[in-house]
Every structure is written in structure tokens, then in C-alpha cells.
Amino acid sequence: MAKKKRSSGQKAPPVQGLLPVTMKINGKSHSDMVEPRLLLVHYLREVVGLTGTHVGCETTSCGACTIIYNGKSIKSCTMFAVQADGAELKTIEGLGEEGNLHPIQQAFWDNHGLQCGFCTPGFIMQTYWLLRENPTPTDEEIRQGLGGNLCRCTGYQNIIKSVKAAAKEMKK
């Protein structure tokens, strides 16, 4: 299950084949030694400790692991951490915080755009990218834009409502 997180000050034992990576995540620089096969989503969750990005299907289908990589939305289960060396990433933790939600987060809250919430970080990050590409999407464009994200609870209607509400709020 969850790997033990390296505590600061305690040096990890040298492991052969580790590579250095440095990336900016939510504006903060992180440097670590990683195995080349470590997936970016596992790096974010288990090394950096940002568990807001979820692991769903692990096969590039569900979109729960969606993050922003150099300005574009990607599925972080389908990229190695070493590929992101030098990159700028944004995860759900970089969007808003309790008491000061991002308009997209607030819109999902207000419109019941979630039930169990497992898929929500992915939907919100994909919405973040979609609204930057297209600030006034039609219903059809929202459906197409969120086509790479799966939700098994809501039936999607309230998610689409949430995206429309967020678009309206962000245009103000």
C-alpha cells in the first residue's frame, strides 16, 4: 500500500538507477531522486505528499489523475516523473483552499457537481484547462471537453451545470 514517506533530514539509502528531478508544483520547487519507472501521479502522491490527485483506473481512461502540465491538461498516470523534470505543474491543491475556493470549486459545490467526490479533482482540473481554452463553452463543447473524465455517481448533469456556472462567474 502507501509507501513510507521520506522524512526530511533523513537521507534515503542510495538506490542504483535513480535520477534527479526538479519541478515546480503549484508554484513551489521540488527536487527528488526517482526511479525512471515511477509514474508522475505516484510521485505527486507518495513522494511530494499531494494526495488530492487521485488514481482511478490507471489505464488512461477515467481522468481522476488529471493535472496541468506546462499549461496543458494531462493524465498523470500516463507519464513518468522523469519526463516532468523541469516542468511546471498545477494540481487541485494549487487551485484554491478551504474558505477560499477557486470559482470552479465553488461552482461544483453550489451545483452539487459531485457525490462521492473521487473523480472531482480530475473534473475540476480538466474544467480549469477547458475554460482557459474556451471561456464560454456550449453544452456540447463541455461534454466533449470533459469526455476524458468518468463519474460514476452524478449522471453528469450537475457537472455540466457546474462548469457553466463557473464559466459565468469567471467571466465577471
Partner: peptide
Amino acid sequence: IGDPQVRNM
């Protein structure tokens, strides 16, 4: 092709 995230990569 694929979905938007797949097309971005």
C-alpha cells in the same frame, strides 16, 4: 482521437 487529455500529449 482519444480524449482531450490524450490529445494534449
